[in-house]
């Protein structure tokens, strides 16, 4: 008996039926009063690490090809290389932890609008259609930070085309955005957002399912004290 094959089969029988997993996507932006700032993007699959580890041992799951560790690392490197070339972006770093399945990318920007097209372009590079249009803006004069977000209608229809089994992957996945400022926040228009006790940060947490379905909109306009 080919032990490796047997092992793969075993994992398949044992683990795949429960392939709903939890993962976190976190976006952190720290704005300085002069309009520059830093971004940290984190994707954390640690809660599902048993499943991810199992899936990584398989060639494909539910009809999707499973990327190898090398392939994931390579794609992360490509994203970093792309960022380094982007206008107004500097100090690009990435980390990856294949024991806990956590990856981060961090960088600094000259102006928050520099990052507007980045996510979209990175996704496009990987041949993934963006599911939303999102743009950031910081007005130094009025000290307003705003994010405009519009879910693309087709995202929902595309998503609904997926098999129930595949959709289940997104059950329990969360998206968190944190905006941090040097000045105090006087107002934040998105009702789903929370202002920290220190009044210097705004957080919005939502399930990825709600984002895809358009139940939650992450647009926000944050007024800082002058």
């Amino acid at each position: 008996m080919k032990l490796k094959q047997f092992y793969k089969l075993l994992l398949f029988i044992v683990l795949i039926p429960f392939l709903s997993s939890c993962f976190e996507v976190i976006e952190e932006i720290a704005m300085k009063n002069d309009g520059t700032g830093d971004v940290v993007l984190t994707i954390n699959l640690s809660q599902s690490k048993t499943k991810v580890a199992s899936v990584m041992l398989l060639d494909s799951v539910q009809g999707y090809k499973v990327p190898s560790k090398q392939k994931i690392q390579q794609e992360l490197n490509e994203a970093v290389a792309y960022l380094r070339k982007s206008e107004g972006i500097s100090n690009v770093k990435s980390t990856s932890d294949f024991n806990n399945y956590i990856a981060t990318i961090s960088f600094s920007f000259k102006d928050v609008s520099n990052i507007n097209n980045i996510t979209k372009n990175i996704l496009a590079q990987q041949k993934i259609k963006a599911t939303n249009t999102s743009s950031y803006n910081y007005n130094k004069a009025t000290k307003t930070f705003s994010r405009k977000y519009q879910a693309i209608g087709t995202a929902k229809t595309e998503f609904n085309k997926l098999k129930a089994k595949d959709k289940a992957v997104f059950n329990g996945a969360t998206y968190t955005s944190i905006y941090r400022f040097e000045s105090l926040v006087t107002s934040s228009t998105n009702p789903a957002s929370n202002v920290s006790k220190s009044k210097k940060a705004v957080m919005l947490k939502s399930s990825i399912m709600d984002l895809i379905n358009g139940k939650i909109n992450v647009s926000n306009s944050i007024q800082l004290s002058k």
Binding site: E24, Q47, K197, A201, V202
Partner: peptide, 15 residues
């Protein structure tokens, strides 16, 4: 029991 990594946020929403 399986351990996993997640985040907590303080008063300043520091991770």
């Amino acid at each position: 029991d399986v351990t996993y990594t997640t985040y907590e946020y303080d008063d300043d929403y520091k991770q």
